[in-house]
Computed example of a mutant assay.
Amino acid sequence: MYLKSRVKVLLAERDMSQKDLAEKTGLTTRLISEIVNNKVKMYPKEAMEKIMVALEVKDVGELFTTVEEADDK
C-alpha cells in the first residue's frame, strides 16, 4: 500500500495553480510539482504543514489517499 498525494485535486477544487500554492506557502514550485506528481519519497513535515494552512485543510489525511500499487510509470 502506498500514499498518493491529493494536492492536485485540492488545488482544482480551490481553483488554484501550483504557482499560486508556491507563492502562498513560500515553497518552491519544484517542490510543489514533485508533491503533486508523487515524485517525492519523503514528504517534508514543514512543507506539508504550510500546504495544509494554504489549502485550509484541517486533517493531514485530506492530503493523501492510499493506493495498492505505486504508479511510478
Rank of each mutant, 00 (worst) to 15 (best):
residue 33 S to Y: 10
residue 48 M to K: 07
residue 23 E to R: 13
residue 39 K to I: 04
residue 49 E to F: 09
residue 41 K to C: 00
residue 42 M to E: 15
residue 59 D to I: 06
residue 21 L to F: 07
residue 61 G to E: 01
residue 42 M to F: 13
residue 63 L to C: 00
residue 32 I to W: 03
residue 18 Q to S: 10
residue 63 L to K: 05
residue 42 M to L: 11
residue 49 E to R: 15
residue 57 V to K: 04
residue 33 S to T: 09
residue 24 K to A: 15
residue 62 E to K: 11
residue 59 D to M: 12
residue 32 I to E: 03
residue 36 V to D: 06
residue 42 M to N: 12
residue 22 A to Y: 09
residue 43 Y to D: 04
residue 52 M to Q: 11
residue 30 R to C: 06
residue 58 K to A: 12
residue 37 N to T: 02
residue 30 R to F: 05
residue 54 A to H: 00
residue 47 A to H: 05
residue 29 T to G: 05
residue 22 A to R: 01
residue 43 Y to W: 07
residue 51 I to C: 04
residue 39 K to R: 15
residue 21 L to V: 14
residue 22 A to W: 02
residue 47 A to P: 02
residue 44 P to S: 14
residue 52 M to D: 07
residue 50 K to S: 12
residue 59 D to G: 04
residue 23 E to C: 12
residue 27 L to A: 00
residue 16 M to C: 09
residue 35 I to M: 11
residue 62 E to V: 14
residue 58 K to R: 09
residue 40 V to H: 00
residue 16 M to F: 11
residue 63 L to W: 01
residue 58 K to I: 02
residue 38 N to P: 00
residue 45 K to M: 05
residue 58 K to E: 15
residue 30 R to W: 03
residue 38 N to Y: 00
residue 21 L to R: 07
residue 52 M to K: 10
residue 57 V to T: 01
residue 62 E to D: 12
residue 31 L to D: 03
residue 21 L to C: 13
residue 56 E to N: 12
residue 59 D to V: 09
residue 60 V to P: 06
residue 21 L to W: 08
residue 60 V to G: 03
residue 22 A to E: 08
residue 62 E to S: 11
residue 40 V to M: 04
residue 23 E to K: 14
residue 22 A to N: 09
residue 56 E to Y: 10
residue 16 M to L: 15
residue 39 K to A: 07
residue 25 T to D: 11
residue 31 L to I: 13
residue 17 S to K: 10
residue 40 V to D: 05
residue 18 Q to E: 14
residue 60 V to L: 13
residue 20 D to A: 06
residue 20 D to L: 03
residue 45 K to E: 08
residue 60 V to I: 13
residue 43 Y to L: 08
residue 19 K to A: 14
residue 31 L to F: 05
residue 23 E to A: 15
residue 42 M to T: 13
residue 21 L to Y: 04
residue 18 Q to G: 14
residue 63 L to E: 08
residue 40 V to E: 04
residue 34 E to Y: 04
residue 23 E to T: 06
residue 20 D to I: 02
residue 40 V to P: 00
residue 57 V to H: 07
residue 28 T to E: 13
residue 57 V to S: 03
residue 54 A to G: 00
residue 34 E to G: 00
residue 44 P to D: 15
residue 37 N to A: 01
residue 50 K to D: 08
residue 54 A to M: 03
residue 21 L to A: 12
residue 49 E to I: 12
residue 46 E to W: 04
residue 46 E to G: 11
residue 30 R to V: 14
residue 35 I to D: 07
residue 45 K to W: 02
residue 58 K to W: 02
residue 48 M to G: 03
residue 46 E to P: 00
residue 25 T to P: 04
residue 56 E to D: 07
residue 57 V to E: 02
